[in-house]
């Protein structure tokens, strides 16, 4: 039963486990403080982006602008951060606020504009990445070393990346999803009409979900800034696809209503680490996108195999 409900996320756990074992055999060095740090750093940006995607997917939508918000926050952070700790903190807060604003735009257009999430976020994808390019026409910027160290360093076997992720997960995500809002978000994605009949304010719930998604995408951008120590308006592009892949692989249902954080987070680490494993295994890095796209497609088909079992054609069509 567990497998049926969380089918693909169980698969993600197994896949990540096997991947790490294989990686260890090829490269024993990963079982060291340094290795742990490298592994943790690799997946954190995508894990945060996947959470951004997850909250929108839970409402029954898809957010194509996640990658653009990652780029935008990366550009803002790297451009305005300065080197004084106070300005760093101020810019981090500003960046998260920009992310929230981006989410608000998406949410209002979906909830009150009554436009399909796909079209809204496809259009805002261009708007946000255009803004990112305005902030930072050329890659570059300045990121103080202490900022980078605070997020990508480590203390023994404990990478700070894990600390950052856990803070976002347990101090932000979990409390929100365990509040009435969290249930409302899942209810809206599950059965919007039923949610309305149960007295849930559907537009408000949608907007808050998109705002939350924007904040997490911005957090992903902040982490990415610590990793790359520069700003690049094109850097976030791949996070749209990979966040969708992580969410689907992590057991969430496209169409809404079902999904919990651990699955997408683990899937995000898998999708990130597999790239270095491919590299370690001597496979050309050109295969990166083949794997990312291919994994998404395989997981999609796997997750929807039930359609080949449903008896009534009409229910398939009306779905």
């Amino acid at each position: 039963m567990i497998f049926r409900r969380y089918n693909t996320s169980v698969l993600a756990v197994v896949a990540l486990g096997l991947l790490l074992i294989y990686y260890y055999i090829r490269q024993p060095l990963i079982l060291s403080p340094f290795g742990a740090k490298i592994l943790a750093n690799q997946g954190t940006t995508l894990a945060l982006a996947a959470l951004a995607q997850l909250v929108v997917v839970l409402t029954g939508g898809v957010d194509l602008s996640v990658g653009a918000v990652v780029s935008l926050s990366n550009c803002i952070a790297a451009t305005y951060m300065g080197s004084h700790p106070a300005s760093v903190i101020a810019v981090c807060v500003l960046t998260l606020a920009v992310g929230a604003g981006a989410g608000l735009v998406n949410g209002v257009l979906v909830a009150y504009g009554r436009i399909q999430p796909i079209i809204v976020t496809l259009a805002t994808l261009y708007i946000f990445s255009g803004l990112a390019l305005m902030v930072r026409p050329q890659p570059g910027g300045l990121v103080p070393p202490f900022y980078a160290n605070a997020l990508t360093g480590g203390w023994g076997y404990l990478p700070y990346a894990m600390v950052a992720l856990f803070v976002m997960l347990f101090a932000v995500w979990t409390p929100l999803m365990r509040s009435r809002l969290g249930t409302a978000i899942r209810a809206v994605g599950d059965n919007p009409g039923g949610a309305h009949m149960s007295g849930i304010n559907v537009p408000r719930t949608l907007i808050l979900a998109y705002v939350m998604g924007g904040v997490f995408a911005a957090a992903a951008g902040l982490y990415l800034t610590a990793q790359t120590t520069s700003g690049d308006a094109a850097i976030g592009t791949s996070y749209t696809l990979n966040s969708v892949a992580a969410v689907v692989f992590g057991g969430a249902l496209l169409g809404g209503g079902r999904g919990v954080a651990p699955g997408p987070v683990i899937a995000a680490y898998f999708l990130s680490i597999i790239i270095s494993v491919l590299f370690a295994a001597g496979i050309s890095p050109f295969y990166q996108s083949v794997f990312q796209g291919g994994i998404l497609m395989v997981v999609l088909v796997f997750g929807n195999l039930w359609t080949l079992r449903t008896r009534n054609w009409l229910t398939i069509l009306k779905n």
């Binding site: 509040s179 009435r180 249930t183 409302a184 899942r186 209810a187 599950d190 059965n191 009409g193 039923g194 949610a195 009949m197 149960s198 007295g199 849930i200 249902l253 209503g257 079902r258």
Partner: peptide, 21 residues
Amino acid sequence: ELSLFAHLTVAENIFIGHEPL
């Protein structure tokens, strides 16, 4: 069945919108 949620638990379905906090 009009107002139920397939992916919520029984308890969540029953108390939707006025969950004990």
